[in-house]
Nucleic acid binder design. Sequence first.
DNA 1: TTACTTAATCGTATATTTGCGATATAAGAT
DNA 2: ATCTTATATCGCAAATATACGATTAAGTAA
Lengths: 111, 111
Amino acid sequence: MAFHKKEEFTQKEQDLAAFAKAMAHPARIAILKVLAQRNECVCGEIVDILPLAQSTVSQHLKELKTAGLITGTVDGPRSCYCINWKAFSTFNSEFNFLFANLKIKNEKACC
Amino acid sequence: MAFHKKEEFTQKEQDLAAFAKAMAHPARIAILKVLAQRNECVCGEIVDILPLAQSTVSQHLKELKTAGLITGTVDGPRSCYCINWKAFSTFNSEFNFLFANLKIKNEKACC
DNA sequence: TTACTTAATCGTATATTTGCGATATAAGAT
DNA sequence: ATCTTATATCGCAAATATACGATTAAGTAA
C-alpha cells in the first residue's frame, strides 16, 4: 500500500503544496501576520499573543522556518524571527501564474 | 486537553488557513491546474491524468468543493467541475492584504 | 557558583489526512 | 429488465498533524 504519493507530482506542484501547507493553520497565519506587520525581527511576544502553549508556538515556528516562510536567528537566550519575503514573492508568482492570469477572461462562472 | 483550538483565532485567519489547507496537497494543486488551464467544466479526465485511484481523486475533488475552491454539477452519470474564480480572487486579496502590501519596503532581509 | 529567563525538544494522547479496494448510485445502452 | 459506464461513498490501515506538560539547553543576573 502506498501512502503519500506526493513524489508522483511535479516539483512545482509539490513546492506550491508545501507552501500552502505551511500556511494551512490559523496559528501560523497569525504568526505570519504579526511578523509582516512588525516588519522586523520579532523576539518572543508571539507566545504572549497566541492562545497556545509555548511549546506549541515553538513547533509552529519551526514548521514555518522549515518550510522557508520565515527566517530565524538565535540571539542569546532568545530567538528572533522575521518574514522571508523572497519566499512569499516566489509563491505569489507561482500562484498567479497558475490561477490569476486566467481570471479576467473567466469571470463568467461555467457551472 | 483541548485539541484543535482553531476557534480561538479570527474568522479571517481561519478562512485563509482553510483555503491554504485545501491547496496543501500536490494532487489538489494538479487538479486546480487542469481546471484553470482548461477554463471550462471538466468532466472526468482528471482521474486519467492523476497517478491516483479513482476513489482518491474523488475525495480530493470533494475537499476542493467543500472548501469552495471549485464548483461542480451533476450531469447524468458524470460530474463536471470548474474553478471558482471568485474564491480565488478573495483569497488573493486577503493574501496580498496581509503580506504583499509590505513587500516593497521590506526587500532588505532583517535576519 | 546558583538562580532566572527564554526558547527548543521530547514524550505522548488524540485528531485528521491520505490512500486503496469494495461497494453503492445513477444514467444510458442493449 | 440487465449490462455498462462514470462517479461517489464506505470502511479500513497507515501516516501526519495538533496540542500539552515536562524536560533540556543556553545565555544572563545575582
